[in-house]
Amino acid sequence: MNTLDYVILFGSMLAIAAYAVWNTRGRRDLSGYLKGSGQATWLTIGLSVMATQASAITFLSTPGQGYESGLGFVQNYFGAPIALIVISVVFLPIYRRLKVYTAYEYLGHRFDSKTRLLGAGLFLLQRGLGAGITIYAPAIVLSTVMGWRLDATIVCSGLLVVAYTVAGGCDAVSLTQKYQIGVIFAGMVAAFFVLLVRLPPGLTFSDALTIAGGFHKMEAVDFSLNMDRRYTVWTGVLGGMFLALSYFGTDQSQVQRYLSGASIRESRLGLMFNAVFKIPMQFFMLLLGVLIFVFYQFERPPVYFNRTVWKAQAEQATDGGLKALDGEFTAAHAAERAQVEAWVAARHAGNRQAEAQARDGASLAHERIEEVRAKTRAALDLASPGTKANDADYVFITFILDHLPHGLIGLLVTAFFAAALSSKAGELNALGSTTTVDVYRHLVRREASDGHYVVASKVFTAFWGLVAIGFALFANLAENLIQAVNILGSIFYGVVLGLFLVAFFLKRVGGTAVFWSALAAQALVFALYATQSISYLWYNVIGCVACMVFSVILQGILGLGGRPTPAAP
């Protein structure tokens, strides 16, 4: 990064935040602070929903995932369009009709106070614990490759997002998200075009995709019914639909975005915007990674993309093992490159036999490359146990720093920070409003002025922001903590969705039955997690279905002695 890059980074981040704070100054009413001024158009909502979901890790890691395992990950998003239609038809009209601030408030309307607190509590536990990761994950990658101090990176980006989220509330969040996502899209499109220009002359786009296909990077869909496969169309459609239903339908950080719409029409169109653009966006990010893979067939990549870790270990090691492996990697890459060039030449000459021969040769050479990479990873693990960082996270940023011109480097690093801040702001805004509406106003102080609750919201938002910064600073000491929080996040979702689906569709079930059924279903999910190894997407399906089935059974038993709570009108 040079001076121009830093000017772009600090200039755009501060300007966007300052503009949002200035534009939303003087908000005194609770509805305006928590739900915005109620004038959001479908485009603002659509971009806001997208920006809240897409964190920095989406943009840093997804190309790395494309580089390593190809396009298959796109299938995980196949359930999203269907889920967003269900939310648009079922969830949204009910939330708007009851004029709720939070999704959990609806559970209070439909069931009772304890079920509302269970929903809000699970959200606060899950998002509150995970609050630091949104900041920590990009900070660790960017500080490592830039040589910045990790703690300073976390504190600066954390305080900036807390400042404008606390000052401007919901409107400031959606206003900043609109400009931040503009920066993100500009950065990604610029990186894509530079990458296309940097491919060797004479190599057509079709050649590039053929090479990627030869290394099994183009397997975008897998219709097999094998449950052991990591990504298939069926896990994507069914598991992905349940995950998207619970995330977009019951996670306050998303619900708050589309409740700010000027009308139900604007909210619906905002959700449909995401239903249409979610899959192409993920496909584009994965394709970027696949093309980086093709680019590195002709340019020697680092043997280990996190070069900071590699250099530190190579200089410390006395046996020179890592440097010897680096030499082996250079030779293996040269052999692979020769085969790939022969393959492209044969393809252009129309010589099918030579093409097949060179393609097989390239595959063999690639196996050798993977072997050297695996040995390098093992040597690094041995030298510094506990550094289980995913090297794929460093692929895209390495490409950017090595092959993009100054100015564009600044734009891309700004895009990563914009993505981190935009999703963090959505989360903090939701944590603050859920704490205010579902806990403070519901349990602690029921009758107070709007101004009082706005101040309370600001205090709670700042509190969660500081928790996030503290957690991110602490996370550096315990990588396993991050793993644990990520797992916790993915195994609560199913049961929360179960609560809402019972509320919408099982009108005979009351609060007591659903409350205890949710706890039993969560215990079942924990037990399965401890004893089985299935894709995390299936925990959501199991948790949700178990919650619904248990509710019906328990209501049947309770129904003999008492009446169920009436459904909301």
């Binding site: 396009l71 796109v74 196949f78 369009p81 269907i82 967003l84 239609i85 648009s88 038809v89 995709l209 053929t210 990627a212 296909g213 099994h216 183009m218 397997e219 975008a220 869909v221 169309v233 619906r268 169109l269 449909m272 239903a275 249409v276 899959i279 192409p280 496909f283």
Partner: peptide, 28 residues
Amino acid sequence: KWGGVYGLVIAIFAAWVSLLTLLSLLFR
């Protein structure tokens, strides 16, 4: 009508799955 919007969204989704299937078959 909203039914038309949802139908359109499903059609676009189906088109994407078809395109991705075609890509997988063309470049395998």
